[in-house]
Design a protein around this nucleic acid. Structure first.
Length: 296
DNA sequence: ACTATGTCCTGCGAGC
DNA sequence: TGCTCGCAGGACATAG
């Protein structure tokens, strides 16, 4: 289940492999479609585009696209657009200056983007195939179909980036919420990128029980949580994410952060700090794991 | 404006 | 061996 660290790992792997490549053609599956944008619009935006950059925003993979130089006349409208770019901070306009189209991929639970040779058998639950000028194919496979494909411009996460948010902004997000802190951490409109695994791990690290009302946390606890979220995510990125279920990165390699899980998926097993059995409860319909002794 | 809950979707493993 | 059933959960819709 790709959360921020897995998506970051996947995006980095894809960037190494497809930046500079050109999308020649697009095939989209016809079943009930996991496409947030209508299929014809998706195909129209993707075809004949060069992949200028691949990155991550929240749990989304973002492909920055620019027109293929070979098919589009390279008459840059430099004079007008450069000014605008600067007004907006410039970042979104440094590529694809003419259009700035983006392909947004959300992997949901079981989504995968794979790079394959065209003669490679098409896996069951393949919903999209992009033929690349390099002769390879970029395929989107998602058995459970919680993933979504869409196109956008200037895509922004609905909430704050967990690795960038300042302490005071973090505190403001949670201070007044009456919902359990676990639910608040999962709310992508507050923080974008934290999912079930890293919410549980962050709460363990900051010694906070998942059911605590967010508004009941002291300033000190919020600061501990702020720090824990960042640490957990950064450590997980360093290890290539957590391989639970069938997650693998763009190279098909597994991540190793699951070996560092202290509570997630450890129901009944002894706490690594105090030996108390880890408890599992359901909060907001999600399994939540905590140590009843270490977390208050 | 918040909060809580149900729904989608398929594969897998436990249990009989 | 083969079956059923519960579970996994991100995002969104809906209701309160």
């Amino acid at each position: 289940m790709p959360e921020l660290p897995e998506v970051e790992t996947i995006a980095r792997g894809l960037a190494e492999r497809v930046v500079g490549d050109v999308i020649l053609s697009v095939w989209l599956g016809s079943k009930p479609e996991p496409f947030k944008s209508p299929a014809p619009e998706l195909a129209a935006v993707l075809e004949s585009r060069r992949i200028a950059r691949v990155g991550r925003v929240g749990k989304h993979i973002v492909f920055d696209l620019e027109p293929d130089r070979r098919s589009a006349p390279r008459k840059a409208k430099k004079t007008k657009k450069t000014k605008k770019a600067k007004d907006r901070g410039g970042q979104a306009e440094t590529f694809g200056g003419v259009c700035g189209a983006q392909w947004i991929v959300h992997l949901g639970m079981t989504g995968r983007l794979t790079i394959e040779a065209p003669d490679r058998e098409v896996e069951k639950h393949t919903h999209a195939i992009l033929t690349l000028a390099s002769g390879r194919e970029l395929r989107f496979v998602d058995p459970r179909r919680f993933g979504r494909l869409s196109v956008a411009r200037g895509f922004l996460a609905p909430g704050k980036e967990p690795l960038e948010v300042e302490l005071d902004a973090f505190v403001r997000l949670f201070r007044l919420r009456k919902t359990p802190i676990k639910s608040a951490l999962l709310n992508q409109k507050l923080l974008s990128g934290v999912g079930n695994i890293y919410a549980d791990e962050s709460l363990f690290r900051s010694s906070i029980r998942p059911r605590r009302r967010a508004s009941s946390l002291s300033s000190k606890e919020l600061e501990q949580l702020w720090r824990a979220v960042r640490e957990v995510l950064e450590e997980a990125i360093a290890l290539g994410g957590s391989s639970v279920s069938d997650y693998v990165n763009a190279d098909g390699a597994e991540g190793f952060f699951q070996l560092q899980h202290r509570v997630y998926g450890r129901r009944g097993e002894p706490c690594l700090v105090c030996q108390t059995p880890i408890r599992r409860v359901v909060i907001a319909g999600r399994s939540s794991h905590y140590c009843p002794h270490c977390q208050k």
